[in-house]
Design a protein around this nucleic acid. Sequence first.
DNA 1: ACCTGAACACCGTTCAAGT
DNA 2: ACCTGAACACCGTTCAAGT
Lengths: 249, 249
Amino acid sequence: MPRTSKSLRTQASAGSRAAPVAVGLSREVIVEAALAEIDGKGLAAFSLRGLARSLGVNASVVVWHVGNRDAVVAEVLRLVLQDTLPPRLPGQPWQAWLRSLFMRFRAAIQRHPNTAPLIGADTVSNLRPDFALVEAILSVLAEAGVPEDRLCSTYNAVQAALVGFVTQELAHMPTEDLQSWQAGIQANLEDVDAERYPHLVRLLPSLTNRAFILRWQNGAVVPMDSSFEIFVNHVIAGLEASLPKPAQP
Amino acid sequence: MPRTSKSLRTQASAGSRAAPVAVGLSREVIVEAALAEIDGKGLAAFSLRGLARSLGVNASVVVWHVGNRDAVVAEVLRLVLQDTLPPRLPGQPWQAWLRSLFMRFRAAIQRHPNTAPLIGADTVSNLRPDFALVEAILSVLAEAGVPEDRLCSTYNAVQAALVGFVTQELAHMPTEDLQSWQAGIQANLEDVDAERYPHLVRLLPSLTNRAFILRWQNGAVVPMDSSFEIFVNHVIAGLEASLPKPAQP
DNA sequence: ACCTGAACACCGTTCAAGT
DNA sequence: ACCTGAACACCGTTCAAGT
């Protein structure tokens, strides 16, 4: 029975030259430790060697169990996104289900914001394809009345939206010199020419650190709830508007 | 006058211990070379040392000119996205301008698909904020009739969409073992249970290598034109639907 | 000002060797 | 089967030193 504590080996590590024996490590334990590492240090600072250190083993054992770095990271993402798919409640309109999918997906990444860069930019997502997600979206779109020949394209549009907002809301920010970075952005914003950028200047109070490109903290610190809601509204309304009109009574 | 050829130093590199003299390098030349490197080898294989090699100089000179790796990459993205902002044609409806923005943005990344991971996942984008883009979007949204108190959130929704689709369409794929990876995905797809995933199985021909999560090549090889068009339609229609209704005559 | 070269503290991955 | 330890070919960044 594998333990999940930080070091699987005896803690008296100083002069201990432990014999190379099985230590109860498994793919599952390694992936969980990897997620903990990413949660704590971020993706950029995550390494197989560091992961192995946190497990009290040699780096090559990670490779032996899981494969390479990409595989580890793909498994971590799978762990983060598991149970994201909302159940289809009886009688629930497709709009409501889609909305719950978007919210649950975002909530899952919010729990582990440092994994956000993985969901869109890398294709590690398809290293472990989640067929249930694809089927559920296709099913709900078909039910909504999307024509058969546009189902694939419409699915892609939905999938892009599902991942797109959250990727950016929780995008990684420069960790270290937050102080100077914030100061730099703010100084830039104060110097903006009101003649050339009237809207920007007028809306500055509501935009500063709250709008993409104009912020220095990500959605893990400053959630963009109302923006996300409007975004989801757009997606659903856009979907509705693109449906073939039924004969209106 | 800086030259843009591959090696700025004399090509007789074998036994040449060149004296450390100025070599005509500039921030601009370095960033262009960096883009060329990324275009050729991809972001994962891009390194400051490799970049310096391609320029025929020591690695630390890149640091001296541009700063650190993030700064180099931010400048590269700025170069890729320059001139993305479409002009506002006289009498042009806001919908048409927004559509052209989406298309030009995508076209810019299509020219350098390996930079796609930078636009959304990393926040290198705001290391060099493009105020003109922000202002243009705000301006067009205000003109469309978005209420003042929702301008920021609506801007965020548009920005998320602008970046979201392209990020994924051109997401990086495992470069090396494309053969085995493709085989793996195809094998997986053929084994899908038709009882559990009826839509997936029925639509398999149109989904295979054309739908997110079910493809093994990205948009640089297999463009997702019709999906992108539907996506943009959704964005615009969703925006229209969210506008306060004017008094209908 | 602009560049070299060495050094530091890391990486991912492979591979022989142990039990 | 599962692990160690050494090795290989890299990294980004810093810093003294050259011209």
